[in-house]
Simulated scan of single mutants.
Amino acid sequence: MLVTVTGGTGFVGSHSVAALLRTGHQVRLLVRDESTVDGALRPLGLDPGRVDVVVGDVLDESSVIAAVRGADAVLHAAAVYSFDSRQRDRMRQTTERGTQVVLGAARRSDVGRVVHVSTVAALFGKGVRVIGPDSPVGTLREPYLATKAAAERIARAHQDAGTPVAISYPPALLGPHDPRLGDQSTRVRDVLRGLTPIWPTGGFPLGDVRDTAALHAEMLTGSLSGGRHFGPGTYVSTKDYLRHLRAVTGRALPAVRLPARALGPVGHACDLLQRVWPWHLPVQYGAIHTCACATRVDDQVRTHPITARPVADTIADTVRWLHAAGHLTDRQAGRRAHPSANRETTAAAA
């Protein structure tokens, strides 16, 4: 089976490509820059020469048509995942308009299976307590959440029209080998660098990118055709998130938790500052707002056999990779995540 993948050099996309190749399928990537393929796939133990590459953009209909032509299935994973206020125009274009172009091209090319990668956050809304496949599209106005909701509406319109589009809803994702150090990996790094001593209450669904990749492979090439499927994950409070990081690293990581809604103005102020400040700020309104609005996935809606890995294992693998990739020092990674740091500390004390 030939599967065309958009966003294949990103976090979700690259791991999904790995899952497809390991089950014996052919993969074709639509990428803006061919040089990014090696850095995305080789760390996963994959030879970049095993994939076909079409250079283009999800906003360019001609390159999208070339990428999906002759494909048996399409995985649309291209999107901008960021709470950075400077990225809102890119989010509107890539996430919303890109979905329109890719799903439209797949329909016109009579592709047999199409998977649109949405997010649980596309279903968050005021007053919502539990979400499932029949939940309405979210109504939140924060730019990332709003653009993912807009893309969700496009995908659902295709489903209503009879196009063979399935939708996956990944939770927030962690795991090793994040080619672009995305939002969630950056947040772990910032915590361990001591940049986020204040946290909002609330929480969010969290999962492992490798589990979501396995789900995508099953949706594209296995028995899960059509429908709406939630990626394996667990709702984690911010308190438990910090507890897991402390357990993995053996560090105290002191932090104060305040009501998420009370921190909203701080997030807005940081977003305004970020527009003129050239360096990354670890505080973002969108992340705070998500913790306030995020809800659990209904336990009764599991539609696949993939079991979520323990959160502690996912966080441990993430921290180890961040250290191995040079994003964390020995001290920041902690004694438990980086055993050699423990030996060094013991030797220094002696």
Rank of each mutant, 00 (worst) to 15 (best):
L2E: 13
T4Y: 04
V5K: 00
V5Y: 06
G8E: 07
T9G: 08
G13A: 01
S14K: 07
V17H: 00
Q26D: 15
R32Y: 10
D38E: 14
G39M: 05
P43H: 00
G49M: 09
V51R: 00
L59Q: 12
D60V: 11
S63P: 00
A66F: 01
V68G: 03
A73F: 04
V80N: 08
S85R: 13
R88P: 07
G104A: 04
A105C: 14
R107I: 02
G112A: 12
G112P: 05
T119C: 13
V120T: 15
V120H: 06
A122L: 11
V128W: 05
P133F: 14
D134M: 09
G138P: 10
L140I: 12
L140F: 09
E142A: 10
P143G: 02
A146Y: 07
T147I: 05
K148P: 09
A150W: 02
A150M: 09
E152M: 10
E152V: 10
E152P: 10
R153Y: 03
G162E: 08
G162C: 07
L173R: 08
L173A: 11
P176H: 10
P179H: 09
G182F: 07
V188K: 09
R193S: 12
F204V: 09
P205I: 12
G207L: 09
G207P: 08
D208Q: 08
T212L: 15
H216P: 03
S223I: 01
S223H: 11
S225T: 15
G226F: 02
G226R: 11
R228Q: 08
T234M: 02
S237L: 07
K239M: 11
Y241K: 03
L242C: 11
R246E: 01
A247K: 14
A252T: 15
G264R: 14
L273V: 15
L273G: 14
V276E: 06
P278I: 00
L281T: 01
P282S: 07
Q284T: 14
G286P: 09
A287C: 06
A287T: 13
I288G: 08
C293I: 07
A294D: 05
R296G: 02
R296P: 00
R302T: 11
R302A: 08
P310M: 12
V311M: 14
W321I: 02
W321S: 08
H323S: 11
G326T: 03
G326R: 06
G326L: 06
L328P: 00
D330W: 04
R331H: 11
A333K: 13
R343L: 13
T346C: 13
